[in-house]
């Protein structure tokens, strides 16, 4: 059977049904409730990006799905029948942390994990080439940068021939060109092989490849839907350049810095006129179409908090983070 026909057959095999269904997943670590009843479904051939700020519970939830952590409550089921520990041969996982052995070379690490996974293949060699890592694969991982080690872990995880990939913050430590390579690879897996992907992220750029975005905060799901639908539901976004508006005039009493501008959400578009009236004449004040960064900021920091009118206003701006996420004014990223 040709490669093309084989891919088509796999895509057909994987074309129907639920791949992952998690309901009311709960977990407490120490005295901290990390997951508070998380529900999530992934259909076959779907890329779901689980987004949220640091500490939201994304990685812990993914670890529960992967069988690396046991949830206290709720249910996680793969392909309508398998518990995580039973289904491990059907998915491949890249989790955060130093999972590559620093005393082995990149190639030896990939070969090691290829041997461990029942569906392991040597496709990591091709992936290493795409990640521009070929020349470094014979060096020990201990001599790698964080980004290079991450690419080895991703090449290893993505080389398994499985219908589902669980990727924890794959974009962390990747530069923009490598992020594009990763996105292309995930889209190819979905389109040609019918594979599904659950990917955690706090990088708005990852939303570009999502069929569905799920926002997690404080261990709870705040939003779940296709990116376009969630963008449409956002309140109007006001962009201010050349002046710093009062945070209290925005939803959640909070504005966000991005580059040389301040962006915030308005209860209604007409509020823009009141803000503009208080700013110098040369300031640019306009309603702007929402971006994925706005989407991330809204659901990561504001959703569910609009009613907290007594929130203390802050005025200092935080620098834009290196991953493209705008920093909330006066709050720690």
């Amino acid at each position: 059977m040709s490669d093309t026909a084989e891919r088509a057959r796999k895509a057909q095999d994987r074309s129907a049904g639920s791949v992952l269904e998690a309901s009311a997943v709960e977990l407490t670590i120490g005295d901290q409730r990390v997951l508070e009843g998380v529900d999530l479904q992934i259909e076959s051939g779907e890329i779901v990006v689980l987004m949220g700020p640091n500490g939201a519970g994304k990685s812990v939830f993914l670890s529960c799905c992967a069988g690396a952590l046991r949830a206290d409550g709720g249910e996680i089921e793969f392909f309508d029948r398998y518990a995580p520990r039973v289904a491990r041969g059907l998915f491949s996982v890249a989790i955060q942390g130093d999972t590559a052995d620093p005393e082995l070379t990149g190639a030896e690490n990939c070969r090691f994990f290829e041997q461990l996974h029942p569906a392991g293949t040597d496709e990591w060699q091709t992936l290493a080439e795409r990640f521009e890592l070929t020349e470094d694969m014979d060096r020990t991982v201990g001599a790698y940068s964080g980004g290079m080690a991450r690419k080895v872990e991703l090449a290893s995880a993505l080389s398994a021939d499985v219908p589902l990939f669980l990727l924890d913050e794959p974009a962390a430590a990747l530069d923009l060109s490598m992020l594009r390579v990763l996105h292309d690879e995930l889209l190819r897996r979905r389109d040609e092989e019918g594979a599904s992907v659950l990917l955690t992220s706090h990088t708005p750029l990852d939303a570009q490849i999502a069929d569905r975005l799920v926002f997690l905060r404080n261990g709870r799901v705040y939003a779940d839907g296709p990116p376009e639908g969630l963008l449409d539901e956002l309140p109007p976004v006001l962009r201010v350049r050349g002046a710093v508006p009062d945070d209290e005039q925005f939803v959640g009493n909070r504005a966000f810095g991005r580059g040389d501008e301040v962006r915030g959400f308005l209860e209604q578009e007409t509020d823009a006129e009141a803000i503009e009236a208080e700013l110098p004449d040369d300031a640019l004040v306009e309603i702007d179409p929402p971006s994925f960064t706005d989407l991330f900021n809204y659901y990561a920091y504001l959703a569910g908090e609009e009613s907290q009118q007594s929130r203390e206003a802050t005025t200092t701006r935080s620098p834009e983070s290196t991953d493209g996420t705008a920093g909330p004014v006066g709050s720690e990223q």
Binding site: A66, G67, A68, V93, G97, T99, L116
Partner: peptide
């Protein structure tokens, strides 16, 4: 954590 997510 990685090993536990593999069918080892």
């Amino acid at each position: 954590r990685k090993f536990r997510s593999l069918p080892i």
